[in-house]
Structures are given as structure tokens and as C-alpha cells.
Design a protein around this nucleic acid. Structure first.
Lengths: 328, 328
DNA sequence: AACAATATGTTAAACGTTTTACACATGTTG
DNA sequence: CAACATGTGTAAAACGTTTAACATATTGTT
């Protein structure tokens, strides 16, 4: 073994007096004589041998690495997602290659191209680019968005989540509902939250209004709307559903600063259900996404594509979590 | 090219009628005839060739990948750190291999062993294990902790941060200070926050007390202490310095729930300076760590170890950020 | 005692790059 | 016109594994 560089299987073979193939077998847990195994293991210990992942990947075209393509880690929901995905992957012997896109379509495309045909065994992605060119040569699992006919997608039950929020608000005595939605320009599963919400309102003949904000715009218009229709003695709306806790947090703060009593006059329900790390509690009443289930399912779907028990598209149950912004 | 598998340099060579070596030169931007370059590039486009990162890494022992070893992404500070580290690395053509340790010493060791001698070109780590065996064969940059004589460490100016907090509280009229510290069992740079704090108090002859909580313990004892010495008509302490915003957030909430007027009766300063994502503002008055500088320095230090302008140990300036928990 | 059958090892050819040493024109110089 | 620098391209040997195909030793069966 040349000093400075690390020991290879060849060195182990020489040290143990056995052949390269035998060493390989020991390393990979293939059947090998008891005595030989001992000799090889001793040599490995003595030399401090570690398998070279790159040589192995080259030969076996198996990298044991999965790319995680996420918009940002500044949003706690995505940060938690990355945390749990990595944990899931680690527990089954995989590594995570982290790629952050900053919600940029070009960057998303770059990620998908970079991993083309090598580098990773699969991709778990949460993307927005509607024209994403996906290469079928690498298995992909998408979160919250359909990327193509054959690409598995896992999401929470957004439609039901929307229904649930509307139902809860009505149950809690609200008479006129407001849906505030911040959304990308891309059609994705989360848009179904609105359908569910609308459906309940219409079925129950309840008045409602919905305002939409694109994620590349300022939140100003929303605040102006609130100022005009909610702030004051007699708010026009007494129940607000926001399609993200982060948005709900801002709405809550704005209303509080403008003297609106939450949940007294107006009740608010958000979506996502990531606890606020600092306060160690939920920011507001919310529809909680089953984050652990989502990540675990994504990993399973990616690594066992044939496991027929899970479908191609998985929709996981959401749960209502009462918090400080509703009367329950 | 066999169908199903991806094209290799060999295929490109055949397609372009040139040799393997020439193709390699084109790919790596080495000098090559104009016409040859064109032919090769055409063939690459036509076949959709992508270089195999593993073969390249094997041959050149350069992976263009850096391991990020962090305790968790559930804590926004670390999440932001991962986000920015990845951005920095991406901007210079590197990839991030994400490894989460969950503050577990064994897991930390596993990470350090896994990357041994291959897999990555370097490690950026924030660890707690005091007995971490580090292998000098891979360049390491440590954050907030000295890992060894030759291992660069980058941190914020913790000592000055502690001083600053004490000075500010005194400036704002506090008479008796409380330092609440949550800490791992490992001696690390952040412990200097206390020294700085203590130093100012002693120099100015101000009364103070410090309580310590290990990060594997419940926060109960702290709450009991607060209940006994702070809650009530006449709080014994009128200025509290917490060595983390997350801790400060909990203290703040506890005091508010028990009727203490913050910042009226008691003022609080935290440490870290990560804005609360939901509220879109700082949780409390705080000593802000220069996160971007930390991450950028870590990356520079890792990739240009010889650049003598940066020292082996870098200590970056902190800043006081007034917030809702102090009177300024 | 002869011969399968089985257990255990070995040899050598891949995997897809990079890179050193070399070959061959072509043009330049004394 | 020999001698030589220069510009371009090629051949072939690595890098450290995995794995098929093969060799040899061991055991059991008649």
C-alpha cells in the first residue's frame, strides 16, 4: 500500500494472503469459508480498509444515493421534510444528495439534468416548473404534483383538507368564509384545497369569497383586502382559511395589530401543521399534513417501485388540529 | 450503444470518428482542433451523452461533493445553515451530501467514518461528540467547535456576543441579570457567550446569576426557577440573556403566560438571530450570528485551504438586533 | 475405490473515465 | 534539406470494484 493513499481491496488481499474475489465476497457478505473470513476481516481491521463507493458504484451502477430536490430549507415545512426524508433514507442504507432550487424553474431543470443516468439511484422532488423535462432513466417520486403518467406522486388529501377546514369553521359558528390562497403558477395537488373548501360552502349554501395571491407577488394586496373587509367593528368575514400556516401566521399578526379579536371575532385555520420551533406549539389552528407518512411513503415508493400494495398515486389523510385561532 | 444503458465516451468517440482521448479533451475543455471539437460536440448532442460522475471520481479521485454533517434540520438555525451551505457549494460547482445526526454522538462518528477516503472531497460539520475520531485524510471544516489542531473552525464571536448582550441589558436599565444557558455536554465555542456575559457583569459590579440546562434534560427546572424568582409583583431579575432564541422564545412565552410584562418588567435577549418564519420577524431581541458569512467562510476554508488570508480559526462579528422583548 | 456433488477459492474481464507517453503531420529554421 | 519545434490526435494503462467462468479441495455415496 502506497503511503498517503488509502488501502484497497488489493492491499487487503495481499495482507490476508487471499484473492481479490474472496475479499470482495467477505465485504459483500457472500458465502466464504470461516477461516478465510476471519483472515480477511483481520486484514481489513489492520489496514483500516474502507470500500471505495465510487468504484463500487461504477461497477455495479448502484450508488445508494437519492437526490432530494426541494425549493428551500428556509421554510420549516420543507426543512422538516428534508430532515425526515434523510432519516428514512439513512435507515435503509441510502444517502441524500441535497439540491435546493429556490423555487427557480431553471434550477429545478438543472437538478433533473444533473442527476441524469448516474450520480443517484433515484430522485424525490417537490417542484413547480410546469415544463420540467423528466428523464425516465432515473426513478422519480414527486411530492404534491403530478409529473407524468408513470411517475408516482405522494401528497396529503388536499381536497379533504379543504373540506375539513370549511366544515370546522362552520361548525364553530362562522357565517361567512374567506379563503386566502397563496399559490405558485403551477397546477399542483395543493390547489384541490380550494375545491374541497368551495364544495362544502356551496353544499351548505354558505357565503364565501376567495382571494388568490401568486407566490411571486407581495402580500400587500391581501393586507389591503383585510383592512377593507375584515378590520373594524363588524368584520364581513368571521372565518378565514389560509392554504398555508405561514400565510395564516401573517394574516393573524396583521389582524391582531389592527385590533381584530382572534378567535373572538374572526377565526382562522391554516394548513401544513408544522409547529413553530420557537414557541414550541402550533402557530394557529391548522390542517396538519402527515409529514412522516409522506416522507416514508415517498421513500418506499422510490425504492420498491414494484410493491403493488402502494398505488402509483398516494393520497394521505390529513387531520384538524385545534389551536389558538379558533374557539374550540 | 446498447439500448437501455446510457451512452458513454466510447459511443461519442465512435459517432464522431475520433478517439476516446480526444473526446475526453473536449469534455474537459483541453486544447483540441476546431473541427474535432465541433464533431465531438455534435456527437454528444446527438447521443445525449452525460459524463458519468462515478467513473470520473474513481479515476480522478475528485468527487465534487461535500458532506454536510448537521444535528437536525428541525431547528431553523441549522436548516438555514444547510440551505446556505448548499447554495454556496452549488455556486462553485459542488454538491452537498446531507447527513443528519440527531445530536447523536454515535451517528456523528458514523458520518465521519462513512466519508472516509472516498465519497466526498471534504466535510463541513457541526458536531457535539467530544471524542470524535477524525481522519485527517479528508479536509474538514468545523463550525462552532475545535476538532483538532489542524482543523479549521469557524464561529461567530461568541465571547463578544455575550458581552454585547450584557451591555445592552444594562444600558436598557436592567439591574440584576439572569443568564439561562442550554448547552450540550461538549465544550464548544458557544460556551464563551457566558464568559463574555460574566465579564461585563463583574467589570461593572452588577449582580447576576446563571443557570445551566443540559440539552438532554427537560426545561422544567428552568420554568420552576422562573416561577420562583421572576414571576410575581417584583421579579428578582429584570434582564434575561438566553444563549439561544429557541430558549428565549420558550422563556418569553412562559413569562407572558404567567403575567409578567415583557419588556416592561423583564427584558430578554436571545442568541442566533434566525427570524421566525411564520411571523416573518425576529422572535425576540437577539444577538445575531452572521449566518451567511459563516457558511461562506466555511466553504472557502474547505475548498481553498492554502488561501492564507483566512486564518485557521475564523471568528465572525455578531450584531445586536432590537426586537419586541427589550425597551429599545 | 471411483465418482459425483458440494464447498471454497481464483483468474480475469469488465465498468467509464483520465492521463501519460507516443505518433504523425505541418511548418520553421539554419 | 536535414533538424527540429509545434500542434493534434491516438493507444493503452490505470483507478478500485464486481462477477462470471473456472479450478481445486473436500466430502459423501455406491
Amino acid at each position: 500500500m502506497k503511503s498517503g493513499s488509502s488501502p484497497t481491496m488489493k492491499d487487503v488481499a495481499r495482507e490476508s494472503g487471499l484473492s481479490l474475489a474472496t475479499v470482495s465476497k467477505v465485504i459483500n457478505g457472500l458465502p466464504v469459508g470461516k477461516e478465510s473470513r476471519r483472515l480477511v476481516e483481520e486484514a481489513i481491521d489492520k489496514l483500516g480498509y474502507h470500500v471505495n463507493a465510487y468504484a463500487r458504484a461504477l461497477k455495479s451502477s448502484k450508488t445508494n444515493t437519492v437526490a432530494l430536490v426541494l425549493p428551500s430549507l428556509k421554510h420549516p415545512f420543507f426543512a422538516h421534510m428534508a430532515d425526515e426524508l434523510t432519516a428514512s433514507l439513512t435507515s435503509v442504507g441510502y444517502r441524500s444528495l441535497l439540491m435546493i432550487t429556490n423555487y427557480d424553474r431553471q434550477a429545478e431543470q438543472t437538478c433533473f439534468s444533473m442527476v441524469r443516468n448516474n450520480l443517484v439511484d433515484g430522485i424525490i422532488a417537490l417542484t413547480y416548473n410546469p415544463h420540467l423535462k423528466v428523464d425516465e432513466s432515473v426513478p422519480i417520486v414527486s411530492i404534491d404534483r403530478h409529473l407524468g403518467e408513470n411517475i408516482p406522486c405522494v401528497s396529503s388529501d388536499n381536497y379533504y383538507g379543504g373540506e375539513l377546514a370549511a366544515k370546522k369553521l362552520l361548525e364553530l359558528g362562522c357565517r361567512k368564509l374567506l379563503f386566502i390562497r397563496i399559490s405558485s403558477h403551477t397546477p399542483g395537488e395543493p390547489n384541490k384545497r380550494f375545491s374541497g373548501f368551495e364544495n362544502v360552502c356551496q353544499a351548505q349554501g354558505v357565503e364565501y369569497e376567495a382571494i388568490l395571491l401568486h407566490d411571486d407577488e407581495s402580500t400587500e394586496p391581501i393586507f389591503r383586502f383585510l383592512e377593507e373587509h375584515v378590520v373594524g367593528e363588524h368584520p364581513e368575514f368571521d372565518g378565514i382559511f389560509c392554504n398555508a400556516d405561514s400565510l395564516a401566521g401573517k394574516v393573524l399578526r396583521f389582524l391582531q395589530q389592527h385590533g381584530v379579536d382572534v378567535p373572538g371575532q374572526v377565526q382562522i385555520i391554516g394548513y401544513d401543521g408544522v409547529p413553530d420551533f420557537f414557541a414550541d406549539q402550533y402557530v394557529c389552528s391548522t390542517i396538519e399534513q402527515p409529514l412522516s407518512q409522506i416522507t416514508q411513503t415517498a421513500v418506499r415508493l422510490l425504492l420498491n417501485p414494484d410493491e403493488s400494495s402502494i398505488g402509483l398515486n398516494v393520497c394521505l389523510p390529513v387531520k384538524y388540529i385545534p389551536g389558538s385561532t379558533t374557539k374550540d
